[in-house]
Simulated scan of single mutants.
Amino acid sequence: MANYKEATDKELVSLLKEGNKEAFAEIYDRYAMPIYYKVNQILRDEEMSKDLVQELFTAIWTHADNLWDDANLSGYLYVASRNRVLKLIQKGKTKSDYLAELGKYSSTVSYDTLDKLDEKELMLLVMEEIAKLPLKMREVFQLSRLEDLSHKEIAARLQISEATVRKQIQYALRILKSKLANYSSLGILLLALFREN
């Protein structure tokens, strides 16, 4: 390919998987700086952010076979960099310092990419918030969403009215939606939990 600057991301990924250094250089030129700016918005440390981006692109080069042929390359790179930021934070930085920025950052990534890369991480976040619900509300919500019992079955098991079950679920949904408002990338995973009935 004569002009890599005109190549689509899909074409570049295909060439990268064949070990094409020019394709890799073009991917780097397109995405390294935007990703660096996003990472640095969260970490607020230029050297650490540069190191993280370099490590990300080194991993992309050495593990190019792991890329899907039809991957949304920008989405993949943003999610991969965000996951590296999360790991860095988990290793010693205070999570609360970065959560607001991280929430904004995660909203820039497509649902499809997140579904492929992030389902376990997102489910852990949801489960943490469910665990913080008041005891009775949590019990009702878990029976409804995690054990898939009907309102009638829950009412019979807990010896409460169906109206109480309905209200507890509605309250739980309001609480969870407000707690997870910054994580718009929860997408399909949350839709399954947050249906209204």
Rank of each mutant, 00 (worst) to 15 (best):
A2K: 15
A2G: 14
N3D: 15
N3E: 10
Y4K: 00
K5N: 13
E6S: 14
A7N: 09
T8I: 07
T8W: 06
T8H: 11
D9W: 02
K10C: 10
K10Y: 10
V13G: 01
V13M: 07
V13L: 13
S14R: 10
L15T: 06
L16R: 01
G19R: 05
E22T: 11
E22D: 14
E22S: 12
A23W: 04
A23Y: 00
A23R: 06
A25N: 12
E26T: 01
E26C: 02
I27K: 01
I27C: 02
Y28C: 08
Y28H: 03
Y28A: 11
D29T: 10
R30Q: 08
R30K: 08
Y31R: 05
A32Y: 01
A32T: 08
M33S: 14
Y36I: 05
Y36D: 13
K38R: 13
K38W: 01
K38S: 11
L43W: 01
R44Q: 15
R44I: 08
E46S: 15
E46C: 09
E47F: 09
E47R: 06
M48Q: 15
D51G: 08
Q54M: 14
Q54V: 12
Q54S: 14
L56C: 08
F57Y: 03
F57D: 05
A59D: 15
A59N: 11
A59W: 05
W61P: 04
W61N: 00
T62M: 08
T62N: 14
T62R: 00
H63A: 14
A64S: 14
A64F: 03
A64N: 10
D65N: 10
D65L: 05
D65K: 01
D65A: 12
D65F: 04
N66K: 12
L67K: 06
L67I: 07
D69M: 11
D69Q: 09
D69S: 12
D69V: 03
D70C: 10
D70R: 02
D70T: 09
D70P: 06
N72F: 04
N72C: 11
L73K: 02
L73A: 02
L73W: 02
S74R: 06
S74H: 06
S74W: 06
G75N: 07
G75I: 00
Y76F: 12
Y76S: 01
